[in-house]
Amino acid sequence: MAEKKKSIWKFGTREVVFAAIGAALYAVLGYATNVLQLPGAGNVSIRPAVVIPMFFGIAFGPIVGFISGFVGNILADLLSGWGFWFWWDLGNGIMGLIPGLFAGMIVDYKAVKSLLLGELSVILGSGVGMGVASLSEMWVSGADMNTVIFANFIPSFVSNIVNGLILLPILMVAYAAVVQRSGRN
């Protein structure tokens, strides 16, 4: 496959549709698993669907990744009746945006280097995204730093990186086959 430089900040018609698909997928899959609350952790649930914004970021760039996470989390929360929690939506958006920053470096989605970059982006994205969302609890619910770290950040970060590290390479390898078959990237 010929190496070519991708523009990661483009947001044309295809990106609009991919962002909408990513957000809807995240909402549907997130809704299906939103009831699995982590015991003792405030505002945190186990969602294998977190891999969707990460994957859409890696595949289609940071804007698509951000919208998939941000809008998808809003829709998943609205569908589950959770209401609207802006900072957690923003955190989920960042979780898709940071992997998107790696999109320009990835051409062959099943190459070992690409998979390792993907895994790195999962750790960075989850760390920054959940960090921002968890810190918001200091402002909204008045929690101290210990509570923020142990009740919000660690449960959400660990849950998200475990889901992301396992599922992202599977989606990347599957997408490599789709790209090869369709001839588009």
């Binding site: 957000a23 809807a24 909402a27 998808g72």
Partner: peptide, 9 residues
């Protein structure tokens, strides 16, 4: 995008 996402659900 937001409107389209709702339609895709």
């Amino acid at each position: 995008t937001m409107e389209l996402a709702i339609r895709f659900i």
